[in-house]
């Protein structure tokens, strides 16, 4: 499978990366080069193979339902949460107005 300019534009839009026409033109052969290369995977016989789910056998741990048990993953830290925000007002993050 190979991609054209329109495909790359669509992918870039899905990924929310603005690209100029010139950048699009440059990206098409690059991405096609990579895609052509990874497509050799298609020749591997994977009949009956289960896709890998855990790299190292391990089971998913579940934590107890306790609020702020570990301060590093708990709430009540509004100042820290907002400290790096480009726009923060009245305890909120600010973004360009959204019309739903």
């Amino acid at each position: 499978m190979s991609v054209n300019t329109a495909d790359v534009a669509k992918i870039a839009s899905l990924a929310r990366i603005k690209v100029s026409e010139a950048q699009l033109e440059a990206m098409v052969p690059e991405l096609n080069g990579i895609l052509a290369w990874v497509e050799q995977l298609g020749e591997v016989d994977v009949t009956g193979v289960t896709p890998m789910t855990a790299v190292i056998p391990n089971t998913l741990r579940l934590r107890d339902d306790v609020v702020n048990a570990d301060p590093l993953t708990g709430g009540d830290i509004r100042d820290a949460v907002l400290a790096n925000a480009p726009v923060a007002e009245h305890g909120f993050f600010g973004v360009p107005k959204v019309i739903e």
Binding site: M1, V38, L41, G42, V44, V46, V49, T50, P51, M52, T53, V55
Partner: peptide, 15 residues
């Protein structure tokens, strides 16, 4: 499926 699922299967084979 063609890319990601296939890749995770081949990854299992590599492992």
């Amino acid at each position: 499926d063609a890319y990601y699922t296939q890749a995770q299967k081949v990854r299992a084979l590599i492992s």
